[in-house]
Design a protein around this nucleic acid. Structure first.
Lengths: 161, 161
DNA sequence: AAATACTTGACCATTTTACTGGGTTTATTT
DNA sequence: AAATAAACCCAGTAAAATGGTCAAGTATTT
């Protein structure tokens, strides 16, 4: 499990999509404008998200993207893994001749950590992120009330329309 | 909190150091050989780890590096943060004029996740990683007994001497 | 003094990231 | 039917990060 800006872009875009696609598909152009991510980069990311079966593309005017599952059925780990190239982090490439090499031991220790993080992110759904749990937590960190955060989202929706 | 190969290298090297520096300082050359990391790259990493106060350099013949704290007093999060350039992941650079921008809202949602991961890694010490907890967990995943894993470490120590 | 070992800085190749720009298909709207 | 709006596709590419090299130091111990 790697955590890079790429994964953050993907999660950000999915959050935006989950929030705005309640009624109708959302165009990548809209997401690009709201989140200040380049359109073509979003296309790359969504090509992977689509192949991973997390979003559905609707062509033609009035089209865009929608979640192919409910927001609570999509977890953060799978979003990140969908866009992240699976890097072979072993030196030996997983060859079985590597049983007694110390690099592979420490590598395994690291992988153990990585797995812990993955399973943690697997427990968190897009829906949860949007709902009170983390929103209110963030709001608290910012010394705001969660109503205000929600208002902010609604405000932006109108502004970008 | 980013999780990249750089952080993995640092944790790997610190694990090696913690294990081999029980009695005397360990040279970066030794770590480089055992872990197949380039010496110069290790030098870069350890320069940061030293500035972060996690290791001490001992100059002169017989010198090398030692932990400046006990292995149980060093957590994984601080190792990673020591070598990771703190990337400003906000678009607005944390300016206060950004209160109502949605990029900052989703950014904050992401940061909330990131904080969770950080605090998780903060709970895990180098010492724990070396001891039974995670070693046996890894050994279990590999279908081995932990004795065998420990043996592997000892084996390498002799081999590289 | 000599050997060892850390320090520092400049440099560089490769890979990944993030983006640009050109298409093509599909579906809607007029 | 024509225009249009959108996904979808693909080749290229600039910028950044990664991982590494080289060289000239400085400090310490023997």
């Amino acid at each position: 499990m790697r955590l890079t800006t790429k994964g953050r872009y993907a999660v950000t875009a999915m959050l935006d999509l989950a929030f705005h696609s309640q009624t109708k598909p959302v165009t990548l152009t809209d997401i690009a404008n709201r989140q200040t991510i380049s359109l073509s980069y979003l296309e790359q990311l969504f090509a992977r998200l689509r192949k991973a079966g997390m979003v559905k593309g609707v062509r033609g005017p009035g089209g865009g993207y929608t979640l192919s599952r409910e927001a609570h059925q999509i977890n953060i780990a799978e979003i990140i893994e969908a866009v992240d190239e699976p890097v072979d982090s072993t030196k030996c490439g997983g060859k079985s001749n590597c049983h007694n090499d110390q690099p592979c031991l420490t590598h395994d220790l690291w992988m153990g950590l990585s797995d812990q993080i993955r399973s943690y992110l697997k427990q968190i759904s897009l829906g949860q992120l949007l709902e009170r749990d983390l929103v209110s937590e963030v709001a608290h960190r910012q010394g705001q009330h969660s109503e205000r955060v929600i208002d902010t989202l609604a405000l932006k929706e109108r502004k970008s329309a």
